[in-house]
Design a protein around this nucleic acid. Sequence first.
DNA 1: CATGTTTGTTAGTAAACCTTACGAACATAA
DNA 2: TTATGTTCGTAAGGTTTACTAACAAACATG
Lengths: 380, 380
Amino acid sequence: MTTEVDSFGPRRVLRPSAKVLPEQARAHNRSLVLQTLYRSGPLSRADLARETALTRVTVGDLVAELIGEELAIELGTRVDASRPGKPATLLDLNRDGHRIVGIDLGDTEVFRGALIDLDGTILERREIDARGLVGGDAAAAALALARELTAIADRPVLGVGIGSPGIVDLAGCVLTAPNRGWTDLPLQARLQAELGLPVIVANDANAAALAEYGFGGASADLMLVMVGYGVGAGLLLDGTPLFGSRFAAGEIGHVVVGTDGGEACACGKQGCLETWLAVPRLQARIAAGEPREAVLRQAGERLGIALAPIVGALNLSEVVLSGPVELLDGTLAEATVDTLRQRTMEQFHGDLTVRLTSLGGDIVMRGAAVMVLSARLGVS
Amino acid sequence: MTTEVDSFGPRRVLRPSAKVLPEQARAHNRSLVLQTLYRSGPLSRADLARETALTRVTVGDLVAELIGEELAIELGTRVDASRPGKPATLLDLNRDGHRIVGIDLGDTEVFRGALIDLDGTILERREIDARGLVGGDAAAAALALARELTAIADRPVLGVGIGSPGIVDLAGCVLTAPNRGWTDLPLQARLQAELGLPVIVANDANAAALAEYGFGGASADLMLVMVGYGVGAGLLLDGTPLFGSRFAAGEIGHVVVGTDGGEACACGKQGCLETWLAVPRLQARIAAGEPREAVLRQAGERLGIALAPIVGALNLSEVVLSGPVELLDGTLAEATVDTLRQRTMEQFHGDLTVRLTSLGGDIVMRGAAVMVLSARLGVS
DNA sequence: CATGTTTGTTAGTAAACCTTACGAACATAA
DNA sequence: TTATGTTCGTAAGGTTTACTAACAAACATG
């Protein structure tokens, strides 16, 4: 009995999935064309066929569909025609024909929102004072901000992406967000019903990780650590956000760091990562006269201590920090990477980088835009 | 402009993938039928249609194909016929018609192999003395063991699964395995060429994690910690093994634990997890007169300290230990879970369990069998 | 001006799944 | 016993999808 012998690639384990109909296969190929167009700028149908390995016929058919939905547009014939043959008709995503609304609910003082184009460029900004808002009032403010932004859009809005603090499940239901007093709030479903637009709600750190991957030039395996009033993280593994068994992946703020005590934390424990790293704590210690460099170095070391097992277990090669530049950049980040190097195997993590995000305070809003792009244009 | 508003599920980010042809969609549905048959025992074509949401016609066609390849068999009509209508013809995987060879190269003293049926039951065992084997000799011994096991198989062998120590890439190439002196050894490709059978090589801890999921009743999110001569781990996220950016995911043996020093490690650092937990170290300390309970408690605590950030970041709910029962069970495991509880958020990890594997010393061999099952029967 | 190249489309084919319909084989009730 | 209804498996035919083959259009080049 002979068996054909191929090479076996990445494995998944036995896990019944859903059936695949031809229709869904087509949707997949359609997304493939959209993604190729998104990534590689203006292309002809023939270019797309070469890139996707589909035939020109199939590409032509898919493109006709996309043009019909005004997702793609023809730009006219290619001008640099130094080649023989019929000049190509260039196509591109209808980049200027759509807008995305991205909203960041993570700040304690304001809800920030922006009108964003398909390339992630922020066109308009709006803010709403969110101090003290809890429960339904906070949700209403988020809705108002979304309404305001969709109202000023001069093009059709592809969708509304929202990065929320707290624990958010896959349906965009905020399971818990203590600062806003939210419990089991179906924010995504509610806003979607109100706005009549696709809405996607996810944890703000997860959104930020997506932004760093989509717009920040990060690799597909990435941990994004947000340092602010608290400390949270978003994990991207092979380009896919990690959610965790109870949707609490990345919640490392209350993991105890080290074996030598530490300050008391609001959660009742001692030496939580937040007690070492949260912005108010750092500012307070510096204001109280502790040497700034020493405080920042220690904070970086503690972050490194906390991240070392994670970096080791996941074999991460990229850690990105988000938060106040004046605190994170320099000493703190350097201490983090030094500590990580000292505590992990050089052999596996020699290329480890720890750096600040280049997206600044817009990271969550732009990550929310990536979520919309993925949902509307992405792979199934 | 109205947009249809659906609910959006789990998101992936923009990442150009491959095209999907109808042929591949069919392969997917074929695997779906196989998996359903594997999981849910004997079923009729109509049962399969209901379970998979495919039509009876399509299921009939796929089943005919599977029967033609002798992967499925008809068992005759159902006997408990208390229902009206034509009695169903029961189908099942041809469970007794195939064998799998599973091999564990992780031990320092022996290479263990087994002939395994599709349900994971071990039918025959073989061992080869592996003390001191390095380089080509070690690879030759692995090949000889695989040959011996395929030779005694009385049924066609679906494939050979191998759990190897060290760093193994997706193509089954052992990048580094210090104990065997292997560097960039294309073990999978070489054995496959020699044996003329599908061969899958992966890291032994990853294989063990798959075994715990496939045969040990574990959930799809799982960390399996192997404690032996060294300390390694395998991670399963949503049923998929995690490999890491350089295929070194799970290599936590040389992550430094705690902030209070520790014994010197062979790697040059101090206080690596292995110095606290490796079996030789524990045995030596107990033999030297240290109180057994105290040694084991401390080892468990250190494991908990190392795992806390990982459990927190990944929001894991299940940690499984594999290794010498007399050392791991009881005090050590209890200290681990106690420490984890003390160092993470009760709210997110209240259901965290830490337990010993029930698969004993066969875990890697049976995990290797799961890899073969996945590759031959699994989803694309 | 003839030739070759490239593009995009038309026409026809193969694969895959669907819907509809039917015979076979059974339980149940008149 | 017979009629009715149910369930199973299969046959026939239709729809969708992407493929191959072929072709006209439009250009560069010798």
